[in-house]
């Protein structure tokens, strides 16, 4: 995970720098603790007991432990992509499924791989395969994303972003 200083000084990656099948740098997070999970619930005011009450999660809902929230996974993916395209790129869209449950003790790897790059309306698009794996290499959040990276010399990525006409 990058520090505030690294994010402040991030050098721009350009569309021309990216190759299809290229792996993005992983984010390694963890071990995840009950406290991390509780902190997320408190921050977004999600009071579902399966996220902080182990007795309820295991005894009532028959889960293995308290669970890391899907909303956290939904938020760490765009963060990971945002950091990759900073400062001038844009994370347009992402989609993912919720598969393996994430629980305290897990070591997480947020990952991405370029599957296609293309130009549309003078902007540089990159399609990615993305996910979050645990220490057993089990996929928890398989999905896809589309981001924009600026050209070295070309049209700037517009802000606010306007989706392409087709």
């Amino acid at each position: 995970m990058p520090t505030a200083r690294e994010l402040r000084n991030k050098q721009q990656l350009h569309w021309e720098d990216v190759l299809e099948d290229q792996q993005l740098p992983d984010y390694c997070i963890g071990p995840i603790t009950t406290t991390h999970i509780f902190r997320w619930s408190a921050a977004i005011e999600n009071w579902h007991r399966i996220h902080y009450d182990k007795e309820f999660a295991v005894g009532h809902d028959k889960l293995p432990d308290v669970l890391m929230q899907g909303s956290w996974k939904q938020s760490i993916i765009p963060q990971y992509l945002k950091d990759w395209v900073l400062p001038e790129g844009w994370v347009w869209k992402a989609s993912f499924q919720h598969r393996a449950m994430l629980v305290p003790g897990d070591l997480l790897t947020v990952w991405g791989r370029v599957i296609r790059k293309y130009e549309a309306e003078d902007l540089g698009y990159v399609d990615l395969e993305i996910g979050i794996k645990n220490q057993a290499n089990t996929e928890s959040c398989p999905g896809f994303a589309t981001v924009l990276l600026p050209f070295r010399d070309g049209r700037k990525v517009p802000y606010p972003f306007i989706k392409p006409s087709q």
Partner: peptide, 12 residues
């Protein structure tokens, strides 16, 4: 009810 997945689009 289970959360089967999410899609997001970001514009601003």
């Amino acid at each position: 009810i289970l959360n089967g997945g999410n899609e997001i689009e970001v514009y601003e």
